[in-house]
């Protein structure tokens, strides 16, 4: 059971980081190209959060958003905490604190990638490809 891919969006809805570990159907079969794929993913979550805000009986004022989207296998359990920890301990530590990172701009950082992989493996979310292939 593992992760398929991850998207990190900035507050303007631009995808600043994308990585895929395993994507059984290529982007061409979906949105067409990666850019549209990312845009659609953002749109989907935008709509979902608007929908939730509309349903929410409390009057909540919007909060700056930073979106991390991690697609995982359907048998993965609740990952709320994992996602929170991913932001707190990996994104903030390895990206925000990186002096070369310009806030809001796309980034590439080996340190971040290594930490991300180690973190997901630690949480049992990165398994060998074969297992995943068998699971699809």
């Amino acid at each position: 059971m593992g992760c398929f891919n991850i998207y990190v969006f900035n507050r303007q809805g631009t995808c600043v980081y994308y990585h895929e570990w395993f994507r059984p159907k290529s982007v061409r079969q979906g949105a067409g190209n990666l850019q549209d794929d990312q845009k659609q993913m953002f749109g989907l979550f935008w709509t979902l959060s608007n929908f939730c805000a509309t349903m929410d009986p409390k009057e909540n004022v919007g909060f700056g958003r930073r979106e991390l989207i991690l697609n995982t296998h359907r048998e993965a359990p609740d990952l709320t905490e994992v996602l929170q920890a991913l932001y707190d301990d990996i994104f903030v530590e390895y990206v925000v604190k990186n002096p070369l990172y310009v806030p809001g701009q796309p980034f590439q950082s080996d340190q971040f990638v290594n930490a991300l992989n180690a973190f997901l493996r630690q949480n049992g979310l990165l398994q060998q490809q074969q297992i995943m292939q068998a699971a699809v």
Binding site: V61, F63, G64, Y87, D88, D89, F91, V92, V96, P103
Partner: peptide, 17 residues
């Protein structure tokens, strides 16, 4: 603009209304 991310990550605050 950077520090806010660290704050949000570590302070464990809820939404400000």
């Amino acid at each position: 603009i950077r520090l806010v991310d660290e704050f949000l990550a570590k302070a464990k605050i809820s939404r400000c209304s």
